[in-house]
Design a protein around this nucleic acid. Sequence first.
DNA 1: GCTGTTATTTATCGATCGGTACAAAAGAGG
DNA 2: CCTCTTTTGTACCGATCGATAAATAACAGC
Lengths: 197, 197
Amino acid sequence: MASTGRPRAFDRQRALAAAMAVFWERGYEGTSLADLTEAMGINRPSLYGAFGNKEELFAEALALYEGIEAEQITKALNEAPTAREAIEATLRYNARVYAQDGRPRGCMIVLSLLVGTPESRPVRNLLAERRRVGEHELRDRIARGQAEGDVPSSAAPRQLAAFYTAILQGMSITARDGASREQLDGIVATAMGCWPK
Amino acid sequence: MASTGRPRAFDRQRALAAAMAVFWERGYEGTSLADLTEAMGINRPSLYGAFGNKEELFAEALALYEGIEAEQITKALNEAPTAREAIEATLRYNARVYAQDGRPRGCMIVLSLLVGTPESRPVRNLLAERRRVGEHELRDRIARGQAEGDVPSSAAPRQLAAFYTAILQGMSITARDGASREQLDGIVATAMGCWPK
DNA sequence: GCTGTTATTTATCGATCGGTACAAAAGAGG
DNA sequence: CCTCTTTTGTACCGATCGATAAATAACAGC
């Protein structure tokens, strides 16, 4: 309801997308306010006025990232007829985008901040929580497959989800280390060999 | 041959071990010179005199870390009679130490610095190289198993090594996120299901 | 045109960053 | 004792960190 006042001179969403790209590439602690304002094309007070502070801007950039990625992941998870195909499609999709040109390699949620200063603890917690949610989505899909009969009743959805989550995290690091899509696909192929029979 | 001059008043190896602990816990960029000197119990000029600078100190701390870990890993890899047992022993060992109390969780080589500023690129390259070496050791052990006949000739050592490396990296993140040894062992158990038959 | 509100630019703020200059101190060799 | 060498503690360097104060500019409503 802020129809009054001087109108914002920049596209808030474009600026946010630029911030997301920098955080994704350099991580939370590796990104300075100077990096952000330069990439976003705005001055510091404009950033603070529109986004609060560095931490809030990161949280919003992360939400944008998830919003962009969620569509395809959700599609891969839900549209496949069996849990196994759903998990494999999710892994294959990530193998593709993690090594894609024109964007930072690997997953922003996994790579942005794993260790750091006590001051950045809230950001680490935020990211850990998002990882936990992702793992839960895998688990729910596997449990659904079990309920629908395409996953053996002897399988342990929680354990399988933890395993495929670890694989996705390892793939993010491997992608940052320069692995090609083919190499990531090789990891996916091997990982799918663990599916319960 | 520096028998002359004022003798060093601190234990260099103890100070290095303290630096290693801080780098391991907070990562390279998350650790400040103030953090280091406080943990090491020395003043700044002593640190620079004994270790060069932050980057060289990190490299030496990393070498110490590898030296400590290498013994058990090498033992696990070489003493098992088959490649499968060797890989599983390595994974089990890491599952145990990653979640062990009294030390930072996860692997220092994996977690210390994955993304960051352009200035820290040399450190990232150093860590990526160490990860590559670790992967190569797994590969060599699998290839040896193939030569010795306990691994199917149809198996792909390179692909298997990439897979188990990804698992170890994912386990490091999972451990940092608070996973118990039992949870990590569950991942190991699932991952061993991918072993070629 | 005037008022109220918000965004803009410029110029900082105090704190911390990694890294050192300098002089006093502690040993070895003479 | 004196000299040489290295380490020590103190105090500080310029640069950068995240974040703001203050003044000006651009709009809406009246």
